[in-house]
Structure formats: C-alpha cells, structure tokens
C-alpha cells in the first residue's frame, strides 16, 4: 500500500513537473514567430536569424529540459530512494 502510494505520488509529481514544458513551448513559439517576421522583413539575413533563433530556443528550452529531468528522476529514481527508506 505504501509502495503504491509512493509510486502514485511520484507519477503525479512527474506529471505536474511536465507542466514546465508549457513555458518553453510558448517561448519558443514566440521566438520562432518573431524570427519568421524578421526573415519576412529581411530575407537576406535568413541564416543569421535562424542560427540566433536556434541558440535562443536552446537556451529557452533549458527549463523544459529541467522539468523533463525532474520527471524522469521522479519516475525512475525517486521511487527506489523512497522505498529504500521504508
């Protein structure tokens, strides 16, 4: 019963932590939209805009990656640790 509770808590926590994926999604979408606008205005600077956008997206994605790591930790690592205490 306790095991099931721990697993449930971990799974719910992982699910909640993945809400962190919303932020990068919105942010990257906005960044890409702006990049498209910029390319539309100045098509000759396409490569510069694209590489800068990718770099910015990568940095913006960090929080999403963190939440993914937390989720993975909660699913694969945390149950073992918590059960070890029991």
């Amino acid at each position: 019963m306790d095991k099931a509770l721990i697993l449930m808590g971990c799974a719910i926590g992982a699910g909640i932590s993945m809400l962190g994926g919303i932020g990068p999604g919105i942010g990257e979408g906005y960044a890409v939209g702006k990049a498209c606008e910029a390319i539309g205005r100045q098509p000759e600077s396409k490569s510069d805009v694209t590489s800068t956008m990718l770099l910015g997206c990568a940095v913006a994605e960090t929080t999403g990656i963190y939440s993914l790591i937390i989720g993975l930790l909660l699913i694969f690592v945390a149950p073992g640790i918590f059960m070890g205490y029991m």
């Binding site: 990568a58 994605e61 960090t62 990656i65 963190y66 993914l68 790591i69 993975l72």
Partner: peptide, 13 residues
C-alpha cells in the same frame, strides 16, 4: 549542468 542536461534530455526523451 544545463548543457549536459539539454543534450541528455533531448536524446533520452
């Protein structure tokens, strides 16, 4: 940490 996690997270996901 963020560099390692980014690469790892993307590939692993």
């Amino acid at each position: 940490v963020s560099m390692a996690m980014r690469l790892f997270g993307n590939v692993l996901s």
